[in-house]
């Protein structure tokens, strides 16, 4: 009888011990969830999904207006060395068999299932509720894993100290960055990106930007009429940036 008591005591103690040990992380998780309540009326909400459509048939070879505008808007130097950041670049594509070629601007595609978000160890690379994929530079530790993971090679690493950054676009050494869909403009209420404005100013009208979830927006209407393709569609990333004519 005594042995059974001892056995029972030990059993209950160990079960309680296991329960207490598992309760701790679970409790912390619940507490954290409670602390991090989502603010429902935050401006960036999932009711919107920002997207971009590029009509490559209108994109002119040799024109770099979108690139220059992006550099100016975000305080990037515009240098073209192997260590300088490039948020957007013009890519020239040629079919080697028949010489058919086209050009298009390539930037962060703001995927719906971003590989860069999956691999970031701290969660600094994240997708905002409104679909914009960003790097939270407060948390980025500069491991560059997201740069390895991006199939579009969209991300850049800042290799040296930055002076004279713009107040609206903080950038500094040691973090990774990429196209933000001009998030500083969007948060301030403007609904166009710098590249779009520059392309329109040049008269090419190749870039559309807007809310993919709003069927009345110009981008949705364009997509419904003419359709579009993603770059690397087989990866199933459901990018926010689509192209016509590729």
């Amino acid at each position: 009888m005594k042995d059974f008591d001892t056995y029972r005591r030990r059993f209950v103690t160990s079960v309680l011990g296991i329960a207490a040990t598992t309760a701790l992380p679970v409790g912390v998780m619940f507490w954290q969830t409670a602390q991090g309540k989502e603010v429902d009326d935050s401006p960036a909400s999932s009711k919107i999904r920002w997207g971009m459509l590029v009509d490559t048939t209108k994109c002119a070879t040799g024109c770099n207006a979108c690139v220059s505008a992006c550099n100016k808007e975000n305080g990037i130097s515009g240098e073209v060395t192997d260590t300088s950041p490039q948020w957007i670049r013009k890519v020239n594509v040629t079919n080697p068999e028949n010489g058919y070629s086209f050009t298009l601007p390539m930037m962060c595609q703001h995927c719906e299932e971003p590989p860069c978000v999956d691999v970031c160890p701290t969660g600094a690379s994240f997708k905002r509720a409104d679909g914009i994929v960003l790097v939270d530079r407060h948390i980025c530790i500069g491991c560059r894993y997201c740069m390895m993971a991006c199939p579009y090679k969209a991300r850049s690493f800042i290799h040296q100290p930055v002076e004279d950054q713009l107040a609206e676009v903080p950038r500094g050494q040691g973090c990774v960055e990429s196209c933000t869909f001009c998030v500083q403009r969007i948060d301030a209420g403007q609904q166009t990106t710098a590249c779009q404005d520059a392309c329109n100013a040049e008269g090419h009208q190749a870039i559309f930007f807007g809310d993919l979830k709003d069927p009345e927006s110009s981008i949705s209407k364009q997509l419904a009429t003419y359709g579009a393709k993603e770059v690397l569609p087989d990866l199933n990333l459901h990018t926010g940036v689509r192209y016509q004519g590729i």
Binding site: V117, D118, V119, C120, P121, T122, G123, A124, I139, C140, I141, G142, C143, R144, Y145, F157, I158, Q173, G174, C175, V176
Partner: peptide, 25 residues
């Protein structure tokens, strides 16, 4: 080699559990 080695504490306290790096910590 991290771009921001001073943020190691951040790496120890903020985790994205889908990331292999986070598991590796």
């Amino acid at each position: 080699d991290l771009g921001r080695s001073d943020r190691l504490i951040v790496a120890m306290t903020h985790f994205n559990f889908k990331s292999v790096f986070a598991w590796n910590v």
